[in-house]
Computed example of a mutant assay.
Amino acid sequence: MSSTGPDFGPPPPRRGRRRALTAALAALVPAALLGRLVFDAAGGGGGSGSGGAAARPSPSGARPSEPPAGSPAGDGAKPSPTPSAAAGGPLRGRVVVVDPGHNPGNFRRTSEIGRQVDIGTNRKECDTTGTATNAGYAEAEFTLDVARRMRALLEEQGATVTFTQDGDRPWGPCVDERARIGNRARADAAVSLHADGAGAGQRGFHVILPGAVDEGDADTGPIVGPSRRLGERVAGSFARVTGSAPSDYAGGGSGLVTRKDLGGLNLSTVPKVFVECGNMRDSKDAALFTSGAWRQKAAQGISEGIVSFLRG
């Protein structure tokens, strides 16, 4: 903060020195502008606590506007760094696919998301609307908010982050397409974000790992091992950063569950896990989901697990 103003300025120069002063100012202005550009490129233009900052554009075009600060989905959101700020990070050259579960518009397109798609072991509906807290905070809004926070954190480490959807489409994509997005990106790691809809009184998070499947278009054999390592890293860091306990209703207290009925895992050819961040139907877990500070911790915990996995 500057304290200078009209009452603190230097005395006016004498006429004989005007030409020298003009030349000096002409040299200083480009330097000042250059300094400002460097400051902005390094992310200095936005404070770490700015909740409603506009997201910078991705390589494929402008990102959708994020909710303003103060709303459940936008409280405490942070903008992504520019590519120049992350160019030398430890994850430079690594690709992470983040899959925000469901889509806020799915409930308007029930016929589209209800159609059957092939998931390798059988056919299953394209997608669902997801769950919500008793107060109406939707899983799809939660996952999108945490995903955007993760993008900022991972890009700070130099990773290239690809979303399966960013609130930029009216519904979907279907579960098989979500898997193919990660495959096409040749992701080094892929994480699908979710929140559970179990009974009230059941609490905690769990990470879902792909089981061994070799049917139809599904062959998870090559990714079962690395996906387990990814899941173990994510579960450990999520518990440490958020303070949340592993699920008391799934995984036997380990925080890890293996499944063979999820198309997003069955059809993946890259290491991938699902993270169920807690139970939206439990009042205590729901209070966490609607806290911007906790969602930031969730994003940090998952991101740190990904970083740990990628760095070996």
Rank of each mutant, 00 (worst) to 15 (best):
S254Q: 01
A179I: 06
L193T: 11
I181S: 03
R180H: 13
L153V: 12
T242C: 03
F205L: 00
Q165M: 06
R228P: 01
P210F: 03
R169Y: 08
A190Q: 14
D248V: 00
S247G: 04
A218P: 01
G221A: 14
L209K: 10
G172Y: 09
S254W: 02
G243H: 06
F163I: 05
A147C: 03
G172Q: 05
T242K: 02
S247D: 09
R180E: 15
G158W: 07
M150H: 04
R180D: 15
A200H: 13
I181Q: 08
V175H: 14
G221K: 13
G221V: 05
E232H: 10
F205V: 00
V241M: 03
G236F: 04
C174Y: 10
L193H: 10
E177Y: 12
R203P: 00
A235E: 02
R229V: 05
A239Y: 06
S254G: 03
G252Y: 09
A179G: 05
F238G: 00
D214Y: 08
D248Q: 03
E155Q: 13
G243P: 09
S254P: 03
S192I: 00
V257C: 02
S237V: 02
D166H: 04
S247L: 05
R184L: 15
A147D: 07
A189L: 05
P173G: 02
R203G: 00
R233E: 15
A212M: 13
E155F: 00
R149C: 01
G252Q: 07
V161N: 04
G253A: 08
D168Q: 07
A198E: 07
G211A: 13
M150K: 08
E215M: 12
G167K: 08
G201W: 12
H194C: 04
D166N: 15
L256D: 12
Q157I: 00
L209R: 15
V191H: 08
P210A: 04
I208Y: 07
Y249P: 00
I223C: 11
R180S: 15
